[in-house]
Amino acid sequence: MTVSRPSNDTAHLYDGKTVRSAAPSRKKIAGQIGSGTDIPKDAIPDVEIPSFIESLLGGPLVPKTKFLPPAKMVQNLQLGVYGILVALALLTYMISPAEGTIWYMITGSLGVATILQLILIAGATGTGFWGTFQRDGRFTLASNLMFILAILRFASSKVTLSNDLLGLQDKPFLLSALVVIYAVLLIMYFELTNGVLRYSMLDTSIRTNEVYVMNPQKIVGKYHRSLLINPIIATLLATVVLSANTILPFFVGILSKDTALRMEESVELISVYGVALGTFFVFCVVGGLFALNLPTHLQSFREKRADGN
């Protein structure tokens, strides 16, 4: 409520005023002293709804409540992020040569493009380190975006390396494996930076008695197991999906060896379109499984089997 005429002398307010025998209504008085009819701010309870970005990060973009010093679990996760960051930076440098980058297209100079690409990778790594150390979602988000930006290249459909120290350029399978490992590391980096924030929040909530965790070792243990198992599974499955140019000819070879040979030597199948085709087929199958409500049936089967035991 604001008053339009701030004054210590209130005498003028009584000029020509009829004293009533009942208390006036608030609205009338509000009208007389030029007040607004807004709802007082403190009458509305504060409701904290996380923004879209906050929910993506698993925690607040700008931490409103200060995290308590990291627990051992969080420190381990931070160490994991640092390790992955180093590996990711090296792999990003290796698999994203300056040719084909946006910088190369803009400047036309390989040297300048290389420098800019290196600055981008270094920037992604630096902000990643800082964001993880400070547990600040803004920096980790920036780091994630920079890593994605670093691999956006107008490249040929074949994988090329900027630095072939291990001599992988002539070994297509190992080259594919390297890219898969890079992709898995990138996902794990997303997940671990997210985990640092999530577990920092959880740890703070536990220590401030907002949340009670029964048997935390088991819960944390399950997360650790998932951190180990999921990347391995993802690597294996992705390798299968990406090996469409060898798997498809194998099945076709049962019917016709000539066609299988032609497929193996087909440029389309070993190109990015071949990969995309294989991926499309595999995910059609996965989508079908979901459409058939397989997860629910799987769960029911597991429950029934456990009940039977």
């Binding site: 691999i151 290249r153 490249a155 459909s157 898969v180 990406l242 190109s271 996965v286």
Partner: peptide, 19 residues
Amino acid sequence: LRNSQLVTIAVVIFVFLTW
């Protein structure tokens, strides 16, 4: 962009989510 790295990353993310 005919960039197989991007497709590979997409495949890995799909696999990760599916699993």
